[in-house]
Design a protein around this nucleic acid. Structure first.
Length: 279
DNA sequence: CCTTTGTCCTGACTGC
DNA sequence: TGCAGTCAGGACAAAG
């Protein structure tokens, strides 16, 4: 389940292909979240990877030659996707849907059993594409502040947990880190967003940043393990304070962790550390 | 049958 | 009244 830190570490793992020239593209299964463009190879073959960036959970590869940008390859891992950087070609296995092979023999391979990932070609300015244009600020950027969150919470009656997962407000806070951040701040996940004080918003923003940054640091430091010798990324060996710990004692107060469903998503919290706001 | 993921879409509702 | 913002729920795909 790649969240923002895993996506960013995946991007770091792919960075060595920057500048490399694409020799061939193989699409074994076009049926991802959206159809993989039939003419993908025409756009990519013979071109270079100019730059690898990330916006929200999208990995963006700027494609072109020395003088011109031709467009952007957009990659999303969905819920089960992995991008491997193989040093040489290996036979594809069951859920290996897309290969991008380079002239030096390396291969970027997308494996995605549940096929909810995406491979798209964006011509023109990538940031103007419909998928990217309406996104909120990056959670780790200076634009994401307590003031910003507070201002946008004032009109919202929905639960704070579903609200901070809204990509139009702030990107990259998925189900796991939403629960983890709210635990850290000590806010009950069902608290109406508009009930948060400025002080609470300021602390929540700080806790979202430190939670994501800690995961990023853990993943970055284990990049070699995350991207194994075969170029195969594993999952972070992350331990969470509340996520997935239903019925286990809270690490702070020993109270048993509870689960509720919020917006059709499992939500974990400590009833003592995250008391329901009294009205 | 249940669950899991992030994102989009629809239709209904709210408040300025 | 009109409209943008908001919200709840469903859809998607596949597998354990």
């Amino acid at each position: 389940m790649p969240e923002l830190p895993e996506v960013e570490v995946t991007r770091l793992g792919l960075l060595p292909v920057t500048g490399a020239r694409i020799a061939s593209v193989t699409v074994r299964h076009h049926g991802l979240r959206w159809p993989v463009p039939a003419d993908l190879a025409q756009h990519l073959v013979g071109q270079h990877v100019l730059q690898l960036t990330r916006r929200a959970k999208y990995i963006l590869a700027e494609i072109g030659d020395a003088s011109t940008t031709r467009g952007t390859l957009l990659l999303h891992l969905g819920m089960s996707g992995r991008l491997c950087l193989l040093e040489r070609f290996f036979p594809a296995e069951k859920h290996d849907h897309v290969d991008i092979a380079f002239e030096d023999g390396r291969v970027i391979r997308l494996r995605d059993p549940r096929r909810f990932g995406a491979v798209l070609w964006l011509s023109g300015e990538a940031s103007q594409h419909a998928l990217l244009a309406a996104l909120g600020p990056e959670p780790l950027s200076a634009d994401f502040t307590g003031d910003y969150l507070y201002q946008h919470m004032r009109t919202r009656s929905a639960a704070i947990k579903t609200t901070i997962m809204d990509g139009h407000l702030v990107v990259g806070v998925g189900n796991i880190y939403a629960s983890e951040s709210l635990f850290k701040t000590g806010i009950h996940p069902e608290t109406p967003a508009q009930a948060l004080t400025l002080a609470q918003c300021t602390r929540l923003v700080a806790d979202i940043k430190t939670t994501l940054q800690a995961a990023l640091a853990a993943g970055g430091s284990s990049l070699r393990d995350f991207f194994g010798a075969d170029g195969n990324p594993g999952y972070f060996q992350q331990t969470y304070a509340v996520y997935g710990r239903t019925g286990d004692p809270c690490l702070v107060c020993q109270q048993l962790i509870q689960t509720i469903r919020l917006g059709q998503r499992s939500t974990f919290f400590c009833p003592r550390c995250q008391p329901r706001a009294r009205s």
